[in-house]
Design a protein around this nucleic acid. Structure first.
Length: 223
DNA sequence: AAACTATCCAACCGCTGTCGT
DNA sequence: TACGACAGCGGTTGGATAGTT
């Protein structure tokens, strides 16, 4: 049996109060992010470290862009999802001010329905089967996985965390700074990849990190 | 106005990857 | 090499709110 991440009897659960938020903000402004496990005690919070981290990342971070998603953002999410599957943190990393939770919720509540309505296969032709139990090895199509023979480097999501941890594979991957999907969702074999750029025979990737740029350019070309 | 249903989203849970010892 | 601790991720849940009957 797995050990609980914290003493259940001593922690508060559920919605955060304003006071708790303020304590967390104050503490992080003073000491910075990191050491989530010891943070609650140090900050005087009766919360689990995980909960503090989530609250900060998903709600309190000053660089968050609140409010509804724009059409451009939605479009980018759809295209990134077709490429990356349910890898919300990677997708969110390309949407400035958005969190993985926000993107995931938006996908589940808006986009998925929309796509189903439209009868598109995008919901099922994603990089992996969302129904499958999540397993990191199963999240990216083999050809997308970085290894010695396949050194794609995806740009890491905008991490605010503890930089001393070595980057994971996900973070090492870098959807090249200039990518767009013009050729549909089908990924094909025979991929040639190199640092900062890769190409797929039938998949012209040009998803630009700058949202405005990416969408702007695409709209231009659509006209 | 009340009851019921649908939708949204914040938060939780459990799992995996990485690091330090 | 093995193991425990920690951080991060994605799936799921449950409460709040909006919409409908």
């Amino acid at each position: 049996m797995r050990k609980p991440c914290c003493e259940k009897t001593e922690i508060t659960k559920g919605a955060w109060s304003k006071q708790e938020d303020q304590k967390l903000i104050d503490y992080i402004q003073k000491h910075g992010e990191g050491c989530w496990n010891s943070l609650p005690k140090a900050a005087g919070l009766r919360r689990c470290g995980k909960s503090c981290r989530l609250r900060w990342i998903n709600y309190l971070r000053p660089d968050l862009k609140r409010g509804s998603f724009g059409e451009d953002e939605e479009d980018l999410i759809i295209r990134l999802h077709a490429l990356l599957g349910n890898r919300w943190s990677l997708i969110a990393g390309r949407l400035p001010g958005r969190t993985d939770n926000e993107v995931k919720n938006y996908w589940n509540s808006h986009i998925r329905k929309k796509l189903v309505k439209m009868g598109t296969t995008a919901t099922t032709s994603t990089a992996l089967d969302p129904k499958k139990p999540h397993h990191r090895d199963n999240k990216v199509p083999l050809l997308m996985q970085p290894d010695a023979r396949n050194p794609i480097l995806f740009r890491p999501p905008a991490k605010t965390m503890d930089q001393k941890r070595a980057p994971k594979h996900d973070d090492e991957m870098d959807v090249s700074d200039s990518m767009s999907i013009n050729g549909g969702n089908q990924l094909q074999t025979g991929v040639i990849m190199s640092n900062k750029s890769f190409c797929l025979p039938d998949l012209n990737l040009d998803l630009t990190l700058s949202l405005q740029l990416a969408v702007g350019e695409r709209h231009q070309s659509d006209i």
